Simulated assay, not measured.
Amino acid sequence: MLKISIIAGARPNFMKIAPIIHAIQNSGNYIKFRLIHTGQHYDKKMSGSFFEQLEIPEPDVNLEAGGGSQAEQTANIMVRFEKELHENPTDLVLVVGDVTSTMACAVVAQKLHTKVAHVEAGIRSGDWSMPEEINRLVTDSITNYFFTTSEIANNNLRSSGIEEERIFYVGNTMIDTLLKQRPRFQQPEIWKKLNLKDKEYLVMTLHRPANVDQEEKLKELMDEIIAHSGNLPLVFPVHPRTAKILQGLGVSHPRLHMVEPLGYLEFNYLVERAKAVVTDSGGITEETTVMGVPCMTLRDNTERPETMTFGTNELLGTNPKAIKPAMEKLFAGEWKQGKKIPLWDGKTAKRIVKYLLEISNNKEF
């Protein structure tokens, strides 16, 4: 029996681990898992119904290590996870993504001589100003088994000296969740309230400090998006903090609809039917690629270049003047179609569990 501790620290992590849990549950009684929520992010939408929607059990423990600065949060996670591992020893700690919990739990595991597997290993943006990039680099420097989403990630690992036999090219678990949940997308209340129609509105999300913390830049971005989005409604699920900044800047327009953050099923219902998405998120670029929705990313770099080479995503940068030509291209019907990304097929988690069992059978633990 292989014992695994699965780490999640934020809402997107649970989207990534849900299919892994399903694959474990369907693989026979060969793997026993313990689900650990570090509590890195408090999210009021993560109630019991959230876990029911994903069809996974509620975490075995919540370390409640959120809040404070980056350093304080890292320290809290490490102290509490160390205690958890002493009380519940395991064969393998499985971490996903690139949040602080990913890095902190990997460090603790290795210092307690426990093997680490990293799902979404090898992803790089090259931007060390992003906390996530530091988390990726540190985690991959002490990982034993690397589960990757793309050949680009594989090459990043090879170039850093990782042996081929420790790299497992499996695909993207976030897409497993998307494909499973797609038939269950739910129409949000604002659909009827705003009288939205398929392909006749845009969806926006902005949250990165480079975009929302510089007030003049944020105002210029918003002004350009409003000015060049034709007569289409702009649906902007916005964090209350960002909404307050926008209101203070006097950003408003009859076509701009700032709404409360939406649940996963409701948000992706909107994305799937949008004419395009304007975002600075990494994960959304993956989802738009799979659903064939044009995506404009307001960032200078991306850790998911396959969404551009294969997918529907274009990196516009952070210069507001890049928005007008991108919108003109969209409205002229000249946006690229995109094609399928290899192994983003909904079977990634099955491949991960298959490899874990093979590793276990080779008695590497």
Rank of each mutant, 00 (worst) to 15 (best):
L178W: 10
Q186R: 15
N195V: 06
F168K: 06
F168Q: 07
T173Q: 01
I175P: 00
Y169W: 13
L194Q: 06
L179C: 04
D176A: 05
F185T: 09
Q181E: 15
P183Q: 12
Y169L: 15
R166Q: 15
K192I: 03
R182S: 14
R182D: 08
I190D: 02
R182I: 06
W191G: 03
L178Q: 13
K180G: 07
K192W: 05
R184W: 04
E189Q: 09
G171C: 01
E189P: 02
P188N: 03
E163D: 08
L178A: 12
T173E: 00
E189I: 10
V170A: 15
F168V: 11
T173I: 01
M174W: 08
I167L: 01
K192A: 08
L178E: 09
I162A: 09
R166W: 03
E164Q: 07
L179H: 01
N195T: 07
R184C: 09
I167D: 00
Y169E: 10
E163R: 15
W191R: 00
Q187C: 11
F168T: 07
E189H: 09
Y169A: 14
V170K: 11
N172G: 10
I190P: 01
Q187H: 07
L194V: 05
K192G: 14
R182H: 14
I190H: 05
P183C: 13
E165L: 03
W191S: 00
P183S: 14
K193P: 04
K193C: 02
L179S: 04
R182P: 08
D176W: 02
Q187D: 05
Q186P: 03
G171P: 02
V170R: 09
E163F: 13
L179V: 01
I162P: 06
Q181V: 12
Q181W: 07
R166Y: 14
Q187F: 08
E189C: 07
F185R: 10
R166L: 14
L194C: 03
Q181C: 15
T173F: 01
E165P: 01
E163V: 14
G171V: 02
E164T: 09
W191F: 02
Q187L: 10
R182M: 12
I162D: 05
G171W: 01
E164L: 01
T177R: 07
I175E: 11
E164G: 09
T173P: 00
N172M: 12
E163Q: 15
E164D: 09
D176V: 00
E163T: 11
I175G: 02
Y169Q: 11
T173D: 01
T177Q: 05
